[in-house]
Simulated assay, not measured.
Amino acid sequence: MAERMRLQGRTAVITGAASGIGRAIAVSLSRRGCHLALADVNEAGLAETAELARAPEVRISRHRLDVSDKEAVDAFPARVTAEHPGVDLLFNNAGVALGGTFEQVSAEDFEWLFGINFWGVVRLSRAFLPLLRKSDDARLVNLSSVFGLVAPPGQVAYAASKFAVRGFSEGLRHELEGTTVGVTVVHPGGVATSIAASARVPSGATEEEVKRRRRSFQKMLRLPAEVAGETIVKGVEKREQRILVGMDAQALGLLARLFPVSYWKLLASRLRA
């Protein structure tokens, strides 16, 4: 068994750190003495996360960052290293949701989602990989989703982005094998965050459809974000290459392996209940 990753004294960059899973990861890392570079577009939320994560001898910096802005991402490593000596971990956590069928979702909204959920991950990974390579023990952690394991109707754009994160992470892990940089892909299940409530609504969907979908998926968001964050950090400490967060993610992961084509027939009746 590989030696556990020691997080004390290391530095982690976390995107989407203003709330939800990103905030929970920050608090869990801080408890272990890990320094933090917190990034998000929500500066007020970043300030709250920094306060919650505050701990003796833990250095915390806050950075406003839109992960879909290529120029801002390219400049971000320099902003981080102006306040930290190096970077050992990158948590690509920032993400958005977009409900609606493929025909309801506009091309513009589809591209908006990919700009954050996928291209943000790719660009940040490219931007920080030179710094991660300088570390004697580094980890790149990319947040996919349970919808990177299964793809339900009405979530085509979101599932496509999260399957893309999964494929990118697995391929990059193989390329970095034998280096000091490990890659972990995370598949959270129904975590109690605001992602469903704040999801962008496609112009082609009716108000009743939107309400019904939000009610349906809101019922699935039960796992406290704090539990999800701790699960992820413990998995990183164990150098796990794939982390399934929550019993639902574990069950769906197994179902997708056993029934890779017909899993949705087994799930549809239960979700309609």
Rank of each mutant, 00 (worst) to 15 (best):
L266V: 08
F163Y: 10
G86D: 09
F114A: 13
P153W: 12
S161T: 15
L267R: 12
W119V: 02
V181Q: 03
A228L: 03
A251T: 06
P224Y: 08
F259I: 01
G22V: 03
R4E: 12
L36D: 02
F147R: 07
V191P: 01
G154H: 08
T81L: 08
L113F: 12
A157S: 15
F102A: 13
V73Q: 01
M247C: 12
A225W: 04
V87P: 00
L131M: 14
E51K: 11
A39R: 00
G9A: 08
T206H: 07
S203M: 07
F91C: 05
S161A: 13
D88M: 05
A192Y: 03
G182K: 02
V58D: 10
F147P: 02
A157M: 05
E226F: 09
G190D: 02
R215A: 10
L254S: 06
I195F: 03
E175A: 05
P85I: 06
A199I: 10
S145H: 11
A39N: 02
L129V: 14
V261N: 04
M5I: 11
M5D: 03
A39T: 01
L172I: 07
S194V: 12
A12K: 02
V73E: 04
P188W: 06
A24N: 12
G9P: 11
K134Q: 14
S125T: 15
A205H: 13
I14L: 11
R215H: 06
L131D: 07
R272P: 06
G45P: 02
F91V: 06
E48R: 15
R133S: 14
P224D: 05
K265Q: 11
L38N: 01
A225Y: 01
R133K: 15
A44K: 15
G86S: 09
A151E: 07
R31H: 05
A97N: 15
R126G: 03
L7I: 11
T11P: 10
E209F: 13
Q8S: 12
Q8D: 13
S203H: 13
L271D: 07
S262R: 09
I25Q: 01
G148R: 03
A47N: 11
S125Y: 02
A72P: 02
A199T: 15
E207H: 12
R139S: 05
A249K: 03
S169A: 10
Q104R: 09
E237V: 15
A160Y: 01
V27S: 01
V122W: 04
A53R: 00
H35Y: 05
T11W: 00
R272D: 14
D88F: 06
L271P: 08
R214F: 04
L140Q: 00
G182P: 00
R54K: 15
K238D: 06
A94M: 01
R31L: 12
F147C: 12
K219E: 06
I243D: 00
V227L: 07
L65G: 04
R213S: 15
T11Y: 04
P77T: 08
A53S: 15
V185D: 00
Q104G: 15
A199N: 12
R215P: 06
L255S: 00
R126D: 07
G100R: 08
L132D: 00
E108A: 15
I21T: 04
H63N: 09
R123A: 02
V146G: 05
G253E: 10
E48K: 15
S161H: 06
